[in-house]
Amino acid sequence: MTDIGIERQEARRSGSAQQKLLAFASLIVLVAGFSLASPRFFQIDNILSILQATSVNGVLAVGVTMIIITGGIDLSIGTMMTFTAVMTGVVLTWGGMPLPLGILAAIGTGAACGLISGTLVAKARIPPFIATLGMMLVLKGLSLIVTGTKPIYFNGTEGYTLISQGSVIGRMLPAFPVPNGVLILFAVAGLVAWILGRTVLGRYTFALGSNEEAVRLSGVNTDRWKMAIYALAGGICGIAGLLISSRLNSAQPALGLGYELEAIAAVVIGGTSLSGGRGTILGTLIGALIMSVLTNGLRVLSVAPEWQTVVTGVIIIVAVYADQLRRRGSH
């Protein structure tokens, strides 16, 4: 009888749950629509290639979700991803070191860059938008300088392309060769969802976005946690660097700009609030899938690429507007 008389005020808005539902429903509608429109869409091969195409953007989006939940933003993830790939190339191709050290280089470089952004935000009190805008340009420049503007190829490292293209599952289940890149995406997403849901770090991520001053007054070293969150997101960015360079079998120093916006778009479509305090990894995954289903589907229907861009833009606006409507309705 413990619950009798206990006042349990249900949250008036189980907000992000609804948004997730909405996003998920849109995903289903998109998939169904494209499947009807073209028989080539709903084929194993095509589905796998959609998943594969989601992996890089998905990993980036998962990382930046954490930062956005704190009420921050990271505009440098695109060029940071490239820079981590370049550093991996330096270690593996130029240095001739074994693969595990290359992986370490990617994640380590990302974490270090993230730590720098985090320090700028937390200690130097530079607004995240500005700090990471600066980092975006710095890292873009550094990638070009280090490589002398030429790509670094991974031909010397056996199996580098397998990181993303190979399929551990395919070896066991030949009918369904899910690429490793997709597994890595799900692993990273699972890990971050766990961190957000279960750990102290996750708790502070939400708390910072909800009321930073209150967290500080509670005696929490908010600066340190914020730096940790940016560093972790940076490390995840390094994983995206591995994925993309493995897919291209090279580190392309000119690549990167624009990826950050796609990732942020996925986060927003997934219902994470840009003002912080609320958000989910599942939502972000769905958001990333919606983006790549859209791109793929429009391509399958032979829509011109310039129109694909327009449609993507419209979808982002509609998604956020739907979120606003829902919020207004329940308030």
């Binding site: 102290v200 708790r203 005696g219």
Partner: peptide
């Protein structure tokens, strides 16, 4: 107890109370 309420609106009551001193399990879990 501060004059201006200093709570994190997106967290639960318990999460607010133990912020900064969460009882932990291994691996940083709460």
């Amino acid at each position: 107890i501060h004059q201006e309420l200093a709570l994190m609106r997106d967290l639960t009551a318990a999460q607010n109370i133990w912020i900064g001193r969460e009882p932990r399990l291994s691996l940083g879990r709460i």
